[in-house]
Design a protein around this nucleic acid. Structure first.
Lengths: 160, 160
DNA sequence: TATGAAAGACATCATGT
DNA sequence: ACATGATGTCTTTCATA
């Protein structure tokens, strides 16, 4: 169950930058034989250190604005109800194409990353889709403007 | 300035699922000649609809827990100070490897996605790294537990 | 822009050090 | 872990429609 050495890490870093690098190019940059690189990548895939190869979509295909939304439900008398309510809320959100990510936050909360044309559209979406739900204790919307790190997050999450 | 047709979209969807699909495989699945697929992909790249090819790292390499942190600064007398303070805060956070993403949130706020071994470690990080900063009006931490959509976000953002 | 065919580049695998 | 070579597959280019 041991981990990665420097060569593995170097390969992963290169592939992260550009997953279309050929084995020969990687071999050249890292001064190793192609067969070694080939072998390492095969192992990295087998051991699921590389989960998948994918593309990041360009700005034209991404929502222009993002927001992070936190929703907290009232804690009801019957605990089981809370569980089912949260599950329903998450499921509902996850089916919407402008909802890029949805996750649970503790027992009684949900966080989501929402995309839209602009801040107003997102606010409207939150008002019309989320605020209308019953028994919510708290709904917070944090606009996401310029990224300093992790830009391209939207290009990774958005669907076509 | 118009955009993608159905074929383009179909190609993008396939590549998003698995960017290592060969042109021949894509051609076969979509019942088009290889040269057409090749041509389309070339165009998609040239026009930056495909921004990059990358890998998603597996669970073993991802932080086990995530949290979303929102930080709001006090609005000072001198506006220019706020600007520089926010910039400094974002820059500082973005240099830390357990900070997966950082973005501005309106004039006076910052949102970040933080990774850690567990919730306590993240809380400790927030207390020791963020709460200690001066002139903060508000700091909120939202734990991120199970994803319903957009899982693999961490595997995309994390660095090796 | 779409296609078919041909040339060249590449990954893959087996074998041996 | 590394080298080499054989094989089949894939990409890329180009001529044509």
């Amino acid at each position: 169950m041991v981990q990665l050495d420097d060569l593995d890490r170097a390969i992963l870093r290169l592939l992260k930058e550009d997953a279309r690098l050929t084995i020969s190019e990687i071999a050249e940059r890292l001064n190793r034989p192609e067969s070694t690189i080939h072998f390492r990548i095969k192992k990295l895939q087998e051991r699921s250190f590389i989960e998948k190869y994918t593309i990041v979509l360009g700005e034209q295909l991404r929502p222009k604005t993002l927001a992070i939304v936190y929703v907290q439900a009232e804690t009801p008398i019957i605990e089981d109800f809370l569980e089912r309510y949260i599950q329903y809320l998450m499921k509902t959100l996850s089916l919407l194409p402008n909802v890029l990510a949805v996750a649970r936050s503790d027992k009684d909360g949900v966080v989501a990353i929402i995309g839209g044309e602009n801040g107003e559209q997102i606010n409207k979406f939150v008002e019309e889709t989320i605020q209308v739900m019953p028994t919510l204790k708290r709904v917070e919307v944090f606009p996401v403007n310029e990224f300093v790190k992790g830009d391209s997050l939207a290009g990774f999450l958005v669907s076509v």
